[in-house]
Amino acid sequence: MSSMLRLIQNENMKIYRKGTNRIMLLMLVGLILAAGLILKLNTPSPKPHVNDSWKQALIKENKNLEKEIKKVPKESQSYLKKEIAINQYRIDHHLPPVNGLHIWKFVDLMTNLVMVIAIFTIILAGGSIASEFNSGTIKLLLIRPVSRTAVLFSKYIAALLYAVLMLVVLFIVSWLVGGILFGFNGLTQPYLQYHNGHVTETNMVLYIFKEYGLNGVQLLMYVTLAAMISSVFRNSALAIGLSIFLLMVGPTAVQFLSKYDWVKYVLFANTNLTQYITGTPVVSDMTLGFSIAVLAVYYAAFVLIGWLFFTKRDITA
């Protein structure tokens, strides 16, 4: 066990001593700051509510929405229904909406950056295996009293630790930036969740963590895919390029092909688990359990293939 810790320590040293990996962390912080500033400059500062004027506003808005709902096609109706239900809930429970952005809304918006973290981690994971082959250092790495499996595992764990670090940085920095730019007074806002026509109040922190968790599953899948490609082709440019290409094109391609039933077995139809919470699934009969099962099968395949190629093949680099 301690030997595994030492291997991970080694991998961490290689990760954090490499300029590019530190720059990626800075870029993430930079992106959050830039997004915060742009949003701050483009949204008018919120006006405080006068008495119950917000209730009238919401009632008016709901009337408009109900008119609109009759015009739009069936697929778009669910979103409008959700809006109406939430507005109604606010009116009934005396919960005035915060005008403009508030701290949690910003943190919630910034969860989109988990995809950026996924790309950064792909770059790291794809590079950490293949670059050992590209640079020839793999030869000195594998002539130690350590199994190849342990070496591969330590690299994988170190890459995931890097992703976790980035997620923590994302949460803390976006919370701070959101608070400083939009005020900390939105902290008490609950999250209104809409599910099957019912609106429920949940804790914001819980909701954000759920978002992180579900996006984290997606990140895990892509990083594992990148690690596998890296192990199979032993080429960092190919591993990084192919993984990012799949991450960009996969989900779109799946949307295009969503009329076919077999699409539900494709990796990219299942990676985005938030589809079960916020949107509608790619293929209508898909469930969260189904997606988790499909992802588990893909995950096992990636790990097995990556491991076989790393441990069984001759080192000719």
């Binding site: 080694n10 040293m13 030869k139 000195l140 002539i143």
Partner: peptide, 25 residues
């Protein structure tokens, strides 16, 4: 040493040795 002595160029000489010493135990 197999072929060329390829070490991690972005690490110092000492860090390279530290790296291999951790693997040997």
């Amino acid at each position: 040493i197999v072929e060329n002595p390829e070490m991690y160029k972005f690490l110092t000489g000492y860090q390279n040795l530290l790296h291999y010493s951790r693997m040997a135990g």
